[in-house]
Design a binder for these strands. Structure first.
Lengths: 190, 190
DNA sequence: GAATGACTAAATGAACAAAACGGTCATTTG
DNA sequence: CAAATGACCGTTTTGTTCATTTAGTCATTC
């Protein structure tokens, strides 16, 4: 046993971050969970934050894969963006790590965690931005600033999923898709 | 001197809430500022929170007036909503009381303040909702759920004004109007 | 020479005492 | 005598102390 120590450490840390958050996870705990001496962790990672960043980078790669899986070339731009955003936010809702971290960012404001959550949001933003650029080239949508468009799409989606739920009953996937199409694509004007 | 004690108290409290926030304002302080005995405050207001609510109700009335002034019957629905929202958020940015309170809600989460900020948001939401209902009746916009529409409009606006500024240079009034029209009214579809 | 855990300086938080708080009410005032 | 008041009360918040815990190091081990 105990061959790939690096992987063991990452797995132990991921598990502990998911369960207790970043701040409440101690290096001693991770070492114990990984069946590794504490010093060993520091031969692989400069410090606690670098270990954390490594894990988040893995998460971002995972999320990109999830988002790309949701995209189908035979579907329209808006269907693809809707499905990708939906899957991404579903991912966030289902993965203990992202849940715990967004709680910690909101409730405690641990700087390292806030930073990382911004990085995650930026990754999503860039994903959409790329899709927007492509859609403009293909003539699927009007000419527009891809950055603002991606920003608006994400903000709208987050508002509809997270903020709307605070005071109303949650919107289903189909409703969400419809609203997204109605407001962003078709427009309100008669 | 010292005739309208009620008004004096309200003015003193408003000033102190604006300067120090709700939590950091003490009744003793308000009494001193208002040149009034502490007990006198309690002959007009049941407690600190009721005094606070009274002030906020005044603020809501003021904001309604501001919003209504921005509406002109000769202009289109989207121009009116844009102008009203713009003025409302400008109002929020300029009035020390609302600035201090949104800081306190975000940073400390004082329950009474969070509650009051939600009330303020609801007032804006209802204002827009009414305009939406009217616009549908007049055939100015498509049939839609007025509540969701108002919600989306406000969220979009807040995102464009407050969130966009965090990472980019602020959008001017004209840009804002254009974006609002482009995304919500015209739609992205070609 | 890779792995380790005892070690250290810094950060944290439990526990306690002191101060400040919102709200009351017996007394004062005009 | 009705309206105004501030000393007073029980509770909450704040400042302080100090024992514990923490991230990170490094001499020792295998």
């Amino acid at each position: 046993m105990a061959i790939d120590r690096r992987k063991q450490i990452i797995e132990a840390a991921t598990s502990s971050f998911s369960l207790y958050g970043y701040k409440a996870t101690t290096i001693d705990q991770v070492a114990k969970l990984a069946n590794v001496g504490k010093g060993t962790i520091y031969t692989f990672f400069k410090n606690k934050e670098e270990l954390f960043d490594e894990i988040i980078n893995g998460l971002i790669i995972e999320m990109k894969a999830v988002a790309n899986e949701a995209v189908s070339h035979s579907d329209s731009f808006y269907e693809n963006v809707h499905r990708a955003l939906y899957r991404l936010l579903e991912f966030r809702k289902q993965h203990q790590l992202t849940i715990k971290l967004s709680q910690e960012a909101r409730d405690i404001g641990t700087p390292a965690v806030v930073e990382v959550m911004e990085k995650l949001e930026l990754a999503i933003l860039n994903f959409i931005k790329d899709k927007v650029v492509l859609a403009i080239k293909k003539g699927e949508i009007k000419e527009c600033d891809p950055e603002i468009t991606a920003f608006i799409m994400m903000k709208l989606y987050i508002a509809l999923i997270f903020d709307w739920e605070k005071k109303h009953k949650p919107l289903g996937k189909a409703e969400l898709s419809q609203l997204f199409e109605f407001y962003i694509f078709k427009g309100l004007s008669t």
